[in-house]
Computed example of a mutant assay.
Amino acid sequence: MIRLLMAEDHTLVREGLKQLFAEAGGLTVAGEATDGGQVLELLWRGHFDLLLLDVSMPGLSGEELINCIRTRYPSLPILVLSMHNEPQIVRRTLKAGASGYLTKDCDPDTLLAAIHRLADGGHFIAPELAERVVFDMSAGLSPILHERLTGREQQVLELLVKGHSLKDIASRLVISHKTVSTHKTRLMKKMNMANNAELIRYCVTEGLVG
């Protein structure tokens, strides 16, 4: 029996996955977390064979959370199940220490196959994602500006260009105002932007916002 820790902040997604695993057999959801803090607490308290992780949760999340888990639990397989399919995000997530990556629109059989592959010590990337990552890397192009950002910095960028204040961003991401300000300073420096207007123009040009 594979003991899963499922980290997902959307109740409907968790319930759907639990039903899938119950019907498949051989899997049990031994723990559920809705933010990064709960993930670390449950890992400290219990034993799990695999972490099924959404990288866009409140608080500590994404690459920062994966790095933290890898430092403390280097042998734990981490399967990312995300809404993001951008090659640069997949690459950064795998580089941080994830053992596999799937998008939430994958079919149930692919998810089950990935879980079993990781539980057996392997790795798994959705074929269509692997192809995009390979061809994206082989293009030989210089990294575009937003690829320099961490996952958290990208979250802050997205909310900034949508018009949210630093205080609102802090509340949404469950981090301090000072931390948001630090992320903004770093992302502005990495992207060589002087103000919010330049950020918005860039994001519109790159198709990052509607």
Rank of each mutant, 00 (worst) to 15 (best):
N192Q: 15
G207Q: 08
V39Q: 06
G59W: 01
V161Y: 00
P58T: 05
V80T: 06
R91F: 07
E41L: 12
R92K: 14
R45S: 13
I175W: 02
D35E: 07
C106Y: 01
V55S: 09
G26F: 09
L43V: 12
G151H: 09
I144T: 11
F135I: 08
M193I: 05
H10R: 12
G26M: 14
R132E: 15
C68A: 13
V39Y: 04
L76S: 09
D105W: 05
R72M: 14
Y73H: 15
R117L: 09
L53T: 04
L76V: 05
R91G: 02
L129E: 04
A113M: 04
A114K: 02
V161H: 02
L17S: 05
S171L: 10
R201S: 15
Q19G: 14
L20A: 14
K190P: 06
H177G: 00
I144G: 09
L65G: 02
R92Q: 15
A30F: 09
S181Q: 12
Q155L: 12
L5R: 11
P77V: 02
C203I: 02
D136H: 15
E64T: 07
N196A: 08
N67V: 03
R152P: 00
V161Q: 00
I115A: 06
H164V: 10
R3Q: 14
T205Q: 15
A197E: 15
P127N: 06
I69E: 07
A114P: 02
G46K: 14
E32F: 02
K162E: 14
R3W: 08
C106W: 01
P77R: 03
H177S: 06
V204Q: 15
L79P: 00
L20P: 12
T150A: 14
G140A: 14
E32N: 08
D54R: 05
V204E: 14
C68M: 09
G37K: 00
R148Y: 10
L141Q: 15
I69A: 11
G163W: 07
S56F: 13
S138F: 10
S176L: 01
K18D: 11
H146R: 04
D105E: 05
Q154C: 13
L208H: 01
L5W: 10
Q154I: 02
S56M: 14
I78N: 06
I89P: 00
I175R: 01
G59H: 03
A22Y: 06
F21H: 12
T179E: 12
V209R: 05
V174T: 09
F48C: 09
V90S: 01
C106T: 08
L17D: 04
G16K: 12
A24I: 09
R91K: 12
E206A: 13
P58I: 00
E23I: 11
W44C: 13
N85A: 10
Q154A: 10
